[in-house]
Design a binder for these strands. Structure first.
Length: 860
RNA sequence: GCCGCCGUAGCUCAGUGGUAGAGCGCAUCCUUGGUAAGGCUGAGGUCGGCAGUUCAAUCCUGCCCGGCGGCACCA
């Protein structure tokens, strides 16, 4: 018996697949359903990590399964080629970002191909290919013509380390998502995509995404943050400040609490506050507000401070009632109107503020069961349900009707109207970087901002950019930006900002449907393949990439480029790959491959191989270079083969959860690979023996069909670990029916079992599956073999063993024919001597028989 | 604070209103021309806690405890 040798078989089968071109997506064919399987394409960092292995193996298992089920599968791969790491490498090592990126792509392509993925490589592209980003520029200009692109000065998030602007979605806890630097606020001329125009669609569209994780939908819902309320203006008592003749406009979600108002507040960067800053005291207060730090994290934790401007406004429902106008640091300029009315009794922030500055606190919502004469608010605002009181015409109404009544009155008075406000902001897409897709416009003194005509696209990056210094290499290139105006023919300057790389990844899935189309998207191809049936990637993109892509897809769809509104019909977010961490006593991190684990009974110790120093075994954390707890996929492939690695990443945990990489785990997978091979290897060659009835063979057949059913259901539900657990059980069962000395019927049943088994393991361990399939004389390659069927009748045993309970406790068992009628079963049970003994001295009250499952006798 | 997920063998996880399972680890034994291995057998579980529904709850319901994640001056 020869041991299974993946080093020989794996390259052999990969070559066979490539030679037969089996993964090329087919043209539309009548009666053949399409299936678009996609994993989030990688950034070409230079080497594959275990996260990639998990991501692409998950997607591949699904794609291979769907192909076996008869779908015309599109499963492409490409590269998210632009981005800062290339510039950083350029700065640190003096290499060219383009060369660095394409070399990385070449290296990673080899590694991905080694993984045995069922990819249609003929469709590969990188977003940094001019052919790709030129098409991106084309649709960008289309969206500009449709009013979805604009430029304005605005306060932006500035990453001082990466020297670029970040979108709101890219600021995490006040820090840049890549650099980790504390983000500053800066005023800059910025390009925006009008994602807020699509806020309602993006929100409502979530309801149709029933194959997305609930969690991601919830996160997007929270991020978009739609709130309904009212926008209205307070009239100034006395002379209004210049520019505020129409009053001071505020936004509220609680117009029902207007009679509880005790002040009006504006943000420190509100235009009115800026106007008042001529007063040194106001200026000093505004300076105080900014002092707390520019980072969002600091703003959020700052203490509430305020300044009474001395201005007063009239209450909209009572002109004689004057409210003071305060500047307060907790009010955000970029939400609503940057001004609010404060109702301390029913808003915690307003209450904190009112207590500090001794402002009135008047409850206007009475909780159920409370006495209006005695109800008061201490340090906790009341935000629950109740009845409005102390509120004149609103008295006695519940909250929702009161909101409607208050809005109606504001509208009748011409002071305001109901309004919907979003937390979502427009998407700032310009980056001050040289290694990105240029914004395809020129600036002309005479004509202003002029789009580059379509026939002059792509606006390509120059070959000779200087990346030796920080900042934007495009602005300091000697000649690139100088051009002529397409409008007047005069001298003009190119825009040197480039697009956020999230723009690049917001439509690549549509480009894959025809990567060489003369237009950004070939509509016929996109309408055949889109939407993506199953998208697989990390949860970290829940509100970044996945929201941008939904927006861009909708915008392109509205521009007539494709029909599908939502790009990803099914989404699966896989967990991270984690590993134990190891440190020396001096705190230095140690890599897993540098140490050996010593097992003594139930305890584990570790020591460094090179010098025997004791190593402390630490927590299990996400694999990262900084903690040195990574395992290089290539090292694993070399020792155990690709299939064992694929099997382990799929078997260990439910795919959506974090999985723990461990040496013993992959060894277990490797042993499974060998045990599988041994079963195939021990089966006699030649044609399948003729099947004939035999109890032993029937038992195996039943188990085979049950396993096919269970694995099919597991794969359908993306519960690969569960499916693999069933295959482990199946293999254990198969060993009860050794080929050596087996009867002909059992050999036939074994052949059926192995034939099904080769196809069941094919999505997970595709190389082993081919070798096994060939060993038992399967037709063609298993990669194109149909998924095995199961016979429902065979998945059930003819004889059932039913546990017999007495008062809910198991007291014995009986054998009956499957499907035996309850009345008959009851008779058999009561005639059973063992059971009868258990019932001695008891009166039978009731006998419950659940068909084919259990018998329970209630007695006392 | 709000929302969500999770808690089953030493570890990582399946599972089901009705007999508690797998891999790894552990123990015993066998094999020693599959050998930096293979195999047999076994131990190990108040299914996080309490209560409720039920003939029967690890599973359903409620409350509590513990862990993880997301959001959070968004008016």
């Amino acid at each position: 018996m020869a041991r299974y040798n993946p080093k020989e078989t794996e390259p052999k089968w990969r070559k066979a697949w490539a030679d037969a071109d089996v993964f090329r997506a087919g043209p539309p064919a009548p009666g053949v359903p399409k299936y678009y399987a996609l994993e989030m394409f990688p950034y070409p960092s230079g080497s594959l990590h275990m996260g990639h292995v998990r991501n692409y193996t998950l997607g591949d298992a699904n794609a291979r399964y769907k192909r076996a089920c008869g779908f015309n599968v599109l499963h492409p791969m490409g590269w998210d080629g632009f981005g800062l790491p290339a510039e950083n490498a350029a700065m640190e090592r003096g290499v060219d970002p383009r060369a660095w990126t394409y070399e990385n792509i070449a290296k990673m392509r080899t590694e991905l191909q080694q993984l045995g993925l069922s990819i249609d490589w003929s469709r590969e592209f990188a977003t940094c290919d001019a052919a790709y980003y030129g098409q991106q520029q084309a649709w960008f200009l289309d969206l500009m013509a449709r009013g979805l692109v604009y430029r304005r000065e605005g306060v932006v998030n500035w990453d001082p380390v990466d020297q670029t602007v970040l979108a709101n979605e890219q600021v995490v806890d006040g820090r840049g998502w890549r650099s980790g630097a504390v983000v500053e606020k800066r005023k800059l001329n910025q390009w925006f995509l009008r994602i807020t125009d699509y806020a309602d669609q993006l929100l409502d569209g979530l309801k149709t995404l029933d194959r997305w994780p609930e969690k991601v939908r919830l996160m997007q819902e929270n991020w978009i943050g739609r709130s309904k309320g009212a926008r209205f203006a307070f009239q100034f008592a006395g002379d209004p400040p210049a520019g505020f003749e129409a009053g001071l406009e505020v936004y509220t979600t609680r117009p029902d609490t207007l009679y509880g108002a005790s002040f009006v507040g504006i943000a420190p960067d509100h235009p009115l506050a800026e106007q008042l800053s001529a007063d040194p005291k106001v200026a000093a207060f505004l300076a105080e507000c900014r002092k707390g730090g520019a980072s969002e994290a600091e703003i959020e934790t700052a203490e509430k401070i305020g300044f009474d401007t001395g201005l007063t406004v009239a209450h909209p429902f009572d002109p004689d009632w004057k409210l003071p106008v305060w500047i307060a640091n907790f009010i955000l300029m970029d939400y609503g109107t940057g001004a609010i009315f404060g109702c301390p009794a029913h808003d915690q922030r307003d209450l904190d503020f009112a207590r500090k500055y001794k402002l009135m606190v008047k409850p206007v919502v009475l909780p159920p069961g409370e006495d209006p004469a005695s109800f008061d608010v201490a340090d906790e605002a009341y935000v629950g349900p109740g009845t409005i009181f102390n509120s004149h015409f609103l008295d006695g109404l519940e909250i929702e009707p009161a909101k409607a009544a208050a809005v109606a009155k504001l509208e009748a008075q011409g002071q305001g109207q109901g309004a919907t406000v979003y937390r979502l902001r427009d998407w700032g897409v310009a980056r001050q970087r040289g290694w990105g897709c240029p914004v395809p416009v020129v600036h002309c003194d005479k004509c202003g901002v002029v789009p580059v005509p379509r026939d002059q696209l792509p606006v390509a990056l120059p070959e000779d950019l200087d990346f030796s210094k920080p900042g934007n290499a495009l602005t300091r290139h000697p000649t690139w930006k100088h051009t002529t105006c397409p409008g007047c023919g005069g001298a003009a300057t190119r825009e040197t900002d480039t697009l956020d790389t999230f723009v690049d990844s917001s439509w690549y899935f549509a480009r894959f449907t025809d990567p060489t189309a003369a237009e950004p998207i070939d509509k016929a191809a996109a309408d055949y393949w889109m939407p993506v049936d199953q998208y697989v990637g990390g949860i970290e993109h829940a509100v970044l990439h996945l929201l941008y892509a939904r927006f861009v897809n909708r915008a392109l769809s509205d521009a007539g480029m494709l029909e599908a509104k939502e790009p990803f019909e099914g989404l699966f977010t896989q967990g991270m790959v984690t590993h134990e961490t190891y440190r020396l006593q001096n705190g230095d991190w140690v890599e897993p491959k540098e140490l050996e684990i010593l097992v003594e009974g139930q305890t584990r110790r570790a020591r460094r191989i090179q010098d025997g120093l004791p190593v402390i075994i630490g927590d299990i954390e996400k694999m990262s270079k900084s903690k040195r707890n990574t395992v290089a996929p290539g090292d694993i492939f070399d020792v155990y083969g690709v299939d064992a690695a694929r099997l382990f990443v799929l078997s260990d945990s439910p795919p959506e959860r974090d999985s723990i990489w461990s040496a013993s785990g992959v060894e277990g997978a490797w042993r499974f690979v060998n045990r599988v091979w041994n079963e195939f290897d021990s089966q006699p060659g030649g044609p399948a023996p003729a099947a004939s009835p035999d109890p032993k063979a029937d038992e195996l057949r039943a188990f085979t069909h049950r396993t096919v059913k269970a694995v099919t259901e597991a794969v359908e539900g993306f519960r690969f670990n569960s499916g693999i657990a069933r295959m482990y059980e199946f293999l254990n069962k198969l060993k009860e029916f050794p080929a050596d000395g087996a009867s002909v019927p059992v050999l036939a049943a074994r052949h059926e079992a192995l034939s099904a088994f080769a196809r069941l393991i094919s999505p997970f361990t595709p190389h082993l599956a081919e070798e096994a399939w060939a060993r038992i004389g399967g037709t063609g390659m298993v990669v194109v073999a149909p998924w095995p069927d199961f016979d429902p009748a065979l998945t059930q045993d003819a004889v059932r063993i039913l546990p017999v309970q007495v008062n809910g406790k198991r007291r014995g068992e009986i054998s009956v024919a499957a499907g035996a009628e309850p009345a008959d079963v009851e008779k058999i049970v009561l005639d059973d001597p063992d059971i009868a003994r258990r019932l001695e001295g008891l009166t039978i009250r009731k006998v419950i028989v659940v068909k084919d499952r259990i018998v329970n006798i209630v007695a006392g």
